[in-house]
């Protein structure tokens, strides 16, 4: 599958897909999308990159081990749940702030943080699985 064209376009395709996945993640609260879908898109992006150019460049590009990303996501999700406990409300109560940034209302919230956590868990775990399987192919 490692044709020149595929190998040449894969990095661009991957970056575009990752960008798109972040977009899908962020708009998820109001439009179709969200952490699960975004995470799967990003994971496919890395899988494609891995098939095209081998696993080592993907690992270099990710910098962190995929499961570390996953663990970080789980940590974010737990923090998102715990924040409300410090304000005296129940675990996982949503907290919202609407600061005006660049003239528009931006909804910053613990559910958003939670969704980012979901995104990172899915990206990390699925990329880890895909890369682990691809790696065996090369030997």
């Amino acid at each position: 599958m490692r044709t020149i064209i595929f190998r040449f376009t894969a990095p661009y395709l991957t970056s575009l897909m990752v960008l798109f996945s972040v977009f899908v993640l962020l708009r998820g609260h109001n439009e179709p999308g969200g952490g699960f879908i975004g995470g799967l898109i990003a994971a496919s992006a890395f899988a494609i990159y891995g098939i095209a150019c081998g696993v080592a460049p993907v690992r270099r590009a990710l910098y962190f081990h995929p499961l570390a990303i996953s663990a970080c996501g789980l940590f974010f999700a737990v923090i998102a749940g715990l924040l409300s406990v410090f304000t005296g409300q129940g675990f996982m109560t949503g907290l919202w702030a609407f600061p005006a940034i660049l003239g528009g209302d931006v909804g910053l919230s613990t559910p958003l943080l939670f969704d980012i956590g979901v995104y990172l868990v899915v990206v990390g775990s699925i990329t880890s699985i895909a890369l682990a399987l691809e790696e065996r192919e090369s030997d």
């Binding site: 969200g34 995929p66 996953s70 663990a71 996501g73 958003l112 939670f114």
Partner: peptide, 29 residues
Amino acid sequence: HGRNIVNVILVDFRGVDTMGEIAVVMITG
């Protein structure tokens, strides 16, 4: 504050459930 009801259920109304599920995903990884 969410218009995508499915996403609101996932990350807010049933967030603890989702947390358990992402933990499962990570453990399988």
